[in-house]
Design a protein around this nucleic acid. Structure first.
Lengths: 212, 212
DNA sequence: GATGAATGTAATCAGTGATTACACAAAGGA
DNA sequence: TCCTTTGTGTAATCACTGATTACATTCATC
């Protein structure tokens, strides 16, 4: 296993850490033209290197995209945590709302990256400990918050905590994906996107909160 | 504009309606290997025809996939309507549950087709009147049912009908896509998929129903 | 300075969507 | 019956893709 330092040092051989340059080029290209338009050759060209070179650093196009996904997943969880710490976790329901807010805001600003980390055919999700762990971390936080809400009598009667974890995720994922997949138009959403997302989140929170 | 009859008749020139044979081959191939693995050449080969032939009937690969999507969308709305007529619409809340049930059951049994009709990069959704109309039909039914539920006092207080239409769709779409995208595993869903979907749907319905 | 691993190159492979010029079959009018 | 027109399919080809190979280069280290 290479440490981050030793890899950076060794990568400076010919090109000067190609690995990171390739990653940056891939991210830039994806942001410009979308994931579908990404090609390893183009990434190589932009990095000023031969078409075969990237394969020394990433065993396949999927591996390259997985690395992009790791980067993106880091940014997503950071955004969620930032929104949480802004809100605080005194109130578990408000903390849950903050997670949703952070998640949706990030998806809204980073549609292509969201698409990549959500996909399981573009990337090798389960082969990346980092992806699995960061995803799991958020899930655990949600489980804890919902359990606490339950103990404090903040959940509407009849709601099974385990079901709510899954359903909350499904709801927020559905809103995000409807945006990513371009379904807002068909569902007659003429208001600003951010506003619609906020209303949807408010409605969901209202529906689970015993005190509303 | 060609009518269906005349096209069928004329298509029998060399091959005997290639258009439909290509469509069937494409569907079969997609069901076997997934959308990603679909190639026009393979479709042509399976139909016993040269690689360029399909382009006489579908102007591009996207056009071919759009035709597949039209077929699939027809099946989805049929499944939803079937589930609705099984339940009846005496109770608007139960009718909404039936829509969700039909939608999820179909997505569960037809993951790849669901993926295609949900995508806006694989197909030309907005160029297909049929896709747009069938999607709109379901939306209108939901709008009506929710309006009726509102009038009959079946909606929990504080729920804005317009927001609920969107949120219901987002929720059901989220559940379906979590399945399609392979997120069930990560969210620790060890129970049978169909059971989880049912629980999620029940929870959502319970949350909107004033009488529960 | 020689050794050996890490890294990049050039050439090449099989496969892709798409376009073109061409061949062929059938329908319909003269 | 010819002969033109239209609809279909073919063959060849284009530019492009991800991936692999044999080879060359460069560096760290002994």
């Amino acid at each position: 296993m290479m440490t981050s330092e030793s890899r950076t040092a060794r990568a400076a051989y010919h090109h000067g850490n190609l690995t990171e340059v390739l990653l940056a080029a891939a991210i830039a290209l994806i942001e410009e033209k979308g994931v579908e338009a990404l090609s390893v050759r183009e990434v190589a060209k932009r990095s000023g290197v031969s078409p075969g070179a990237p394969f020394r650093h990433f065993s396949s196009k999927t591996a390259l995209l997985t690395a992009v996904a790791e980067e993106a997943m880091g940014r997503l969880t950071a955004a969620v945590r930032a929104e949480m710490s802004r809100t605080g976790d005194a109130d578990p329901i408000e903390a849950l709302r903050a997670i949703g807010r952070g998640y949706l805001a990030w998806a809204l600003s980073n549609p292509t990256h969201f698409q990549i980390i959500s996909s399981r055919s573009l990337i090798d999700f389960h082969d990346s400990p980092r992806l699995v762990e960061e995803n799991e971390a958020i899930r655990v936080i949600m489980v804890d918050l919902i359990a606490r809400a339950q103990r404090e009598g903040r959940l509407r009667p009849g709601i099974v905590p385990g079901d709510l974890v899954f359903s909350s995720r499904a709801f927020i994922y559905g809103v995000a994906r409807m945006w990513i997949d371009g379904h807002f138009e068909e569902w007659r959403v003429e208001r600003p996107v951010a506003e619609v997302m906020e209303s949807a989140l408010d409605l969901f929170i209202k529906m689970i909160d015993a005190q509303s």
